[in-house]
C-alpha cells in the first residue's frame, strides 16, 4: 500500500475530527445558526476516497458526512468555517450553509439536500470531459448513505452512469441509520452490495471502521475506474458515531450496536494501525494533533472576524444574465 496515500488519508481523518469537534462546540455554544452535521465514525471511508482523488483533475461530490474526504481532496479548512459561520467571504457567501458548500469549478460541486441528486451530476461532469476529449485518467466520485440508496435519483443516476460506462466511484456508507430510520425500514435486500451487480457496476465491500482496509478497497475501486474498468460501487459497513446532526442525540441507536464491532471508532483504529504498520509514530501523530488543532483554531477565529452578509448590499439576483437591462 502506498505509504503517502495512507498518511494523507490519516491526516485528513485527524484534521476532520478536530475540526468537527470544534464545530460541535460552536453549535452547542450557539455560535452556528442552522445545523451541524458530523462525519464522526465515517472519516476512514471518506478520507480514503478523497485522498485517492487528485484535485484539479478529478471530481469529488461530497455529501453530508464528508469533512474528511473534503480535507483529503484539498478543500481548505477556511471554506468550511466560513460557510458554517456565515462569512460573506466564503464560497457560498452566506447564501447557503454548513455542508452545502463546494467549488464546482475546482471539481467539487456543492451538494443539494436532495439525496442521490449528485450521482447524475457527477456523471454529467464526466460526460462533459468525454465530449471535450479530456476524460482519460479522470475519476468522478460521490458519497451517499444507506438512506440515499432508496431514492429514485440514486437509482436513475447510478443506472445512467453504468449505461455510459463512466469512470465513476459511488461510495455508500451504510451507517445503519438514515436520520433515525434503521436499515430494516430502508431496504429489503440482503446486502446493498448486491445492487452493484444489478446496476452493472463493479462491487466492493469494506469494513468502514478499518482505515487500512478502506485505503486498500476504496483505493482499488478508484484505480479500477481510472484504469477503464467502468463505474464502481463501494459499500462500507460502519456506524454513525454522532446524531444525524448535532441537534440529535441519536438515542435511537441501540446500545449493543454501539458496543459491537460496527461501533468501533475508525480514528482510534487508525492510530493503532498507523503505528503498527510503521506509517507513523506516536510522536508524529501527537505533533499533527497539535498542529491541526492550531489550524482549526485559526480557521474558526478568522471566519468569526469576517463580515457577515449585508442584506442591503446583497446581489438579489438568481440569474447571471440581465434581459432588457433588468434582472430576471
Amino acid at each position: 500500500m502506498d505509504r503517502e496515500y495512507v498518511r494523507d488519508m490519516f491526516r485528513a481523518m485527524l484534521k476532520a475530527r478536530l475540526l468537527e469537534s470544534k464545530l460541535s462546540s460552536l453549535y452547542k455554544a450557539g455560535k452556528i445558526v442552522g445545523g451541524v452535521y458530523l462525519g464522526k465514525g465515517q472519516e476512514a471511508v471518506s478520507a480514503a476516497l478523497g485522498a485517492s482523488l487528485v484535485k484539479g483533475r478529478d471530481i469529488f461530490a461530497p455529501l453530508i458526512r464528508d469533512q474528511a474526504g473534503r480535507t483529503a481532496f484539498g478543500e481548505p479548512l477556511i471554506d468550511c468555517t466560513r460557510t458554517y459561520l456565515g462569512s460573506v467571504l466564503g464560497p457560498m457567501k452566506g447564501r447557503d450553509g454548513n455542508i452545502h458548500r463546494g467549488r464546482p469549478l475546482d471539481g467539487m460541486p456543492a451538494m443539494i439536500s436532495h439525496l442521490g441528486a449528485q450521482v447524475p451530476l457527477v456523471g454529467g461532469m464526466l460526460m462533459a470531459r468525454r465530449l471535450k476529449g479530456c476524460l482519460d485518467g479522470v475519476v468522478g466520485a460521490t458519497c451517499v448513505g444507506d438512506g440515499a440508496t432508496s431514492t429514485g435519483a440514486f437509482h436513475e443516476g447510478v443506472n445512467m452512469v453504468a449505461v455510459e460506462r463512466l469512470p465513476m466511484v459511488v461510495v455508500v456508507s451504510n451507517n445503519q441509520f438514515a436520520y433515525s430510520t434503521p436499515n430494516d425500514r430502508q431496504f429489503a435486500c440482503e446486502d446493498l452490495l448486491d445492487r452493484a451487480k444489478g446496476y452493472g457496476l463493479g462491487g466492493h465491500a469494506v469494513d468502514g471502521t478499518d482505515p487500512l482496509a478502506c485505503a486498500r478497497v476504496i483505493g482499488r475501486a478508484v484505480a479500477l475506474a481510472r484504469g477503464g474498468a467502468g463505474p464502481q460501487m463501494v459499500v462500507a459497513r460502519l456506524l454513525r458515531l454522532s446524531g444525524h446532526g448535532e441537534h440529535d442525540d441519536g438515542s435511537y441507536v441501540p446500545g449493543d450496536l454501539r458496543g459491537s464491532s460496527l461501533g468501533r471508532d475508525c480514528l482510534e483504529n487508525g492510530i493503532v494501525q498507523m503505528i503498527d504498520a510503521g506509517f507513523s509514530t506516536v510522536e508524529e501523530i501527537e505533533a499533527w494533533q497539535l498542529e491541526y488543532a492550531d489550524e482549526v483554531q485559526a480557521a474558526v477565529a478568522q471566519a468569526q472576524q469576517e463580515p457577515t452578509p449585508d442584506p442591503w448590499h446583497e446581489d438579489w439576483r438568481a440569474c447571471s444574465v440581465e434581459l432588457g437591462g433588468k434582472a430576471i
Binding site: 451530476l121 460526460m127 443516476g157
Partner: peptide, 28 residues
C-alpha cells in the same frame, strides 16, 4: 456523431447529468 445521445428513461438523471455537463462548460 457522438453529440446526440439517447438517454435511459430517467428524467431526473437526464437533468442531473446536463447540469453537471453545463458546470463543466458544455451547452446541453
Amino acid at each position: 456523431p457522438g453529440r446526440v445521445l439517447d438517454s435511459p428513461i430517467s428524467e431526473d438523471a437526464m437533468i442531473g447529468m446536463a447540469v453537471g455537463a453545463a458546470i463543466e462548460g458544455m451547452r446541453p
